[in-house]
Nucleic acid binder design. Sequence first.
DNA 1: ATCAACAGTTCCGAATTTCTGAACTACGGA
DNA 2: TCCGTAGTTCAGAAATTCGGAACTGTTGAT
Lengths: 114, 114
Amino acid sequence: MRPLFHPAIEDIRPDAILYALSDPERAAIFAWLAGAGCGGTCSALADLGERTIPKSSLSNHFKVLRESGLIRSERQGVEMRNQTRCAELDERFPGLIRAILTAYGQLPPEMNTD
Amino acid sequence: MRPLFHPAIEDIRPDAILYALSDPERAAIFAWLAGAGCGGTCSALADLGERTIPKSSLSNHFKVLRESGLIRSERQGVEMRNQTRCAELDERFPGLIRAILTAYGQLPPEMNTD
DNA sequence: ATCAACAGTTCCGAATTTCTGAACTACGGA
DNA sequence: TCCGTAGTTCAGAAATTCGGAACTGTTGAT
């Protein structure tokens, strides 16, 4: 398996972020990761929504999220730990992630600063 | 020509907005409209960026923006007047449009509230 | 009224992208 | 070593996007 690619923070492009999160399934995965604290795995959410997502599709969703710069993935034994890059992202694109998750009605409690 | 469809504010979906603005060309058009005050026409920006956008593509970009709820288009004589729905949108999705335009580095001065 | 010019839309085929089942790789445990 | 689990890659089918050419609707001129 070739090593996982993660863009440097300065190479992250807003169009890639918007594209990645324009798929409700991916947005739900991202929101779930943002709320899960840390280390959400792939198989943990095979049926996050109403349908069962095929694992090849799930793998692809994670790849899109990773390569757009939204998450960081790291192999840990047999499974893959994923975490968001929210802190970095908020520095580069202030308010963006929060506004998007809020628009989806999926802002996790710990990201709420009201 | 069939009448132009504009979604009601409550039918606007965040995924459609993100999708529409995930195309840098469309985002530039939208930013330009947001800054143009009001009434930007289609042909006025055949070459907004470095390349000349074919008019069928331009027409399609406007359709995507319109049907996602980002802009309102109205025929005025022979041409089409377009304006953003920023005010409505900001009520429905607080901070979203601003954060996106800022991320693209295209927040027009009049939307700046710092 | 007819015609020409212009702004934009629609149509449709080519190219690109997305989706997902099946085969495959990687790791850990017995 | 062999098995099970987690996830990736491959490849073909389906869906989407792109853009040139033809078309529609409006205005202004003759």
